[in-house]
Structures are given as structure tokens and as C-alpha cells.
Nucleic acid binder design. Sequence first.
RNA 1: ACGCCAAUAGUCUAGCGGUAGGACUUCAGCCUUCCAAGCUGGAAACCCGGGUUCAAAUCCCGGUUGGCGUACCA
Length: 508
Amino acid sequence: MSEERFMDKIIEVCLRRGFVSPTAEIYGGAGGFYDYGPLGTLMRQKIIDLWRQSFVLDEDNIFEIAGSTMLPESVFKASGHLDSFDDPLIQCEKCKSMFKADDTIKRITGTSAEGLSLDELDKIIAENKIECPSCKGPLSKARDFNLMFKTEIGSTGGIKGYLRPETAQNIFINFKRLANFMRNKLPFGIAQMGSAFRNEISPRNFLIRGREFEQMEIEMFYDPAKENEHPRFQEVADIEINIVTREMQEKGWEKLLKITAEKAVDDGIIPNQYLAYYLAMETLLLKEFGIPEDDFWFRHMQDHEAPHYSAGNFDLEANLSIGHMEIIGNALRTDYDLQKHAKATNSAFEIVSPDGKKIVPHVCEPSLGVGRIFYTVLEKCYREDERGWSWFQFPPPIAPLEVAVFPLMKKDGLAELAQEIHNELKDAGYLSYYDESGKIGKRYARADEIGIPYCVTVDYDSLKEFSITIRDRDTMKQIKLPIEDLEIALGELMDEEAGFEEFTTGEK
RNA sequence: ACGCCAAUAGUCUAGCGGUAGGACUUCAGCCUUCCAAGCUGGAAACCCGGGUUCAAAUCCCGGUUGGCGUACCA
């Protein structure tokens, strides 16, 4: 029997407390699909909102769109996804290795087998007596191996459609309109948040690899001749980021390279300012989410690991209980996609610069996985200590519920006053939760378990002298305040303008 | 995708041919003047389909889902 995985503890809380559950569970489920429950939805939204604030709304030259998840085949023909996603595969019956059928045939016979049907491929393999390239075992029949979900558009099925395997293509195919909207002035960025779909062979590891996943993405278009003139680079120049270079990977690394964004660009470790800008921004965002800075880093992907469109990826990997997992992809897509779509539609995807030069912009793409970040937050915020129950140390800005209001007991008018305070907090915009059942200690435990940062307790002093008590989730310490100061104090605590310590030492 | 293993209330689990049991949770009430598991009562489960059998949660077959290993993850 294997011992309990850390992930199982996280999954157990997720199921029990309404964070995440499998889709279509009552019908046996559907592998690789998950539903966010009541608390999960609240926290997911906060994660998205924080990304949106710092990556989109705070920028003057970035706007967000919401594109369709279904796109016609022509898009993926042009983008290269059909070629690299839709492969006939053969598997060795003996060693179970899988190979691309056409590649294997070409290697053995020297003639191209691209675009042949499965039957034709099988025929060639049989005629040439091709065996497993690694163990000489017998090969299975060729199987279509389609990583994209395919369907037909329209009742007669005249047009093939696919669920998008990445959100990015919506932006590229809207480029002309978007460039016009952005008044044809580089640099500009288009953001998008939404679902993408990949029909994974075997989805595993909960939210880490599902068949539907959400991405928060920006396509940042810039003039390649000005790749080191990001308008706001100076604001992040001094941010220290963790890097694992290709060289470090070859030697086997133990320590992360910690380097400022500016120095990394100057030293040629990160190819340009646009990419470095986002590595710094992501570092800041993940720290805001409560992920310790030593638990994630940017790994310069080896050439063979990078996607077909990428001229260099620095993927953010997190140190999770199940190993090092890619949480964010950062790609330099160059002008690959725009050129492909321009060619396929027989048009030009260009921006005319002030000096009259025609430029096909290059693209820097930070692509953040919502579910993966969500899961990483759960793992990194999970706590077990002497208090006897598990709890989540969510940073207040992403806590699914922000404050819980309890009457010490439900008699003597305490419940009524507590309910009133709860309603006022809701009116003031807090995600407040009211609970009067059972003993107070149990209610604290319940609140801790789902990471509510502050509990407000109404006791007999509240009736006598209009005071309440705020309990801090992290320290279990309490402070007593006049009721009228509650909203302001909570505001400062939630925005992390004031620490709980300042209140307890009487500085506030 | 292949191989091995597994699936019982919301959660964790006992049972392994003949009335499905516990713990936690939850609900109603009692108790309770600040950190879960005090009392009473209630609700709640054998993954799906087929087969064997007088009788299947239990045995067999298929599927689904999950874990591990290999593979895959542009």
C-alpha cells in the first residue's frame, strides 16, 4: 500500500468543502474535467481578478477580449496545430513505445508518408516489414491520435471545427481589427482569459493536467527592432527572478540563479525586455498568491521541449508534492502566427511605423494556467499544526471568504447583533459568512479550514460597550475594537496595509 | 494508450454470497461567557451494465473513474 499522497489531502478538502469536484460525477465522471464548487469559484475569480488588474487594467496599451472556444479547421491548418496535434501513431506491442507513423516510415524507407490514410500507412508498414525502432518488436496498426477535440459545424457538417487547444489563436486571427482598435501603434497587447481543450491521452494529477483548462494570456505585440524598449521595463528592472538556464540543466542544478530582470537581459540570459518584464510580473503575482519565492522558477526550455511556434520558452515551474510542474508558459512566438495567417488568407498582417516601415510585429506570450495556479495555491497555503485541524493560509486578497461573523452564543440577543454586523459587512462589500451553530471553537475551526482570514465575534461586551473581537486566522490572536471601527480595521487588514501585530501592540 | 491495483453516505473506512456497521461531517434540539470531536434525536452509501446463483456490495465479464509504472503532454 502506498502512503497517502499530499495531493490526496488537498483533493479531500476540495471535495468536502466545495472547492473542486469531478465533472458529471454522478454518472461516473469524465476524465480530465472538473467543476469549481462554491468556494472554488470565489477563489478562482479572485485569482483571475488579480491577474487582470496587474497584467491588463494597470496597463495603458493592453485590452482584453473574449473569443469563441470553437474555431473552424482553417485556423488550425494555418497555425500549424493540425500538423503537430493530429498524428497517426503506432505503438510497439512489446515495449509499448509510441511513434509517429509517418516519421517512422520516412526514416526506414526514405519516402514521405505525410497525409496518407491509416490503411495506407498500415500497408506500407506491412510491406516494408517495419518493426519497433527501439526494440524490434511488432507494431500495432496506425491510430489517429487527435489531441484536439473535433466536431462539425452546421447540420450538414460541411465545416470541420475544433475546440481551441490554446486561447491565443483568437487574438491572432482578429489581429487586423485589434491593431486598428489599438490605432496601429506598437507596442500593444491583447489579453484573453478562457478555456482551452486538449484531449490528453491520460489526464492525471487533478487540476494539473485536465482536458479542459483555463488560460490567462496576453499576446504582446512589439517591433522586433525595439525588443529592448519595453515602455515600463524600468518599473520591474530591480525585481529579482529565479532562473534555471539551459547550461544549469545540463550540469544538474541545485541552486537557482537569482538575478534582477535588468541584469538578466544585459547578460543575455533572458532574450529581451518583453519576456523579462513578464517574468518579473509573474514573480510578483505568484508571491501575492502566497507561493514562496523559492518554490518557483523560470526554466529555459530546451529546443526540443518548446512548442512548434516558439523561438524560446521560459516556463514557470513550481515545486509541488508531485514534482516540478509547469504552471505558466512564456513563449516568444516571434511573427510565426501572424505570418502563417497572413499567408493563408493572402493578406498582410503589418503595422506601419511612424517612419513608414512595414513591420510584422513579434509576440511575447505569457500564458498562465488558472487551474494549475489554483492548485499550487492550495498546496502552498495548506497548513497542519498543533491546533488539531488543517487550515489554509490564503493571503487575504485571494481568500474565498474574507470574514466570518459569530455570536459567542446564540441567545441573549447576541445572534441578532452578529447577524446585523454580518449584513453591514456584506453591504460594505465584504465576502462575509455568518455561523451560529454549535460551539465557538468549532466555528473557528470551520473557518480556518477554508482559509477565512478573520473572524469577528460578538460577545456580552458587545451588548454592554459596543465592542467586537477580531480573531486572526494565522496567529489565533484576538483584538477588541469598538464596533464602529470594524470596517476600517478590516479594510486595512484585508488590503494588507496593516498587520495584525500592529493592532495587538496597540499601534493602531 | 498499455500493464498492475482499486472503487461502500459529504469525507474516511468495516464487511467480501443471505437485514450494510462505525467514525467524522451535516441537520434539529439541549449544553456552552472564546478555539473542533459533551448529550439526545434525525438525514445520508454498496460506480455503471451484463452474467452466474434460490440469493451478488461480495464471484465472473465489459465499461467508467482514480492511483502507480511505462508512454504521451505540440
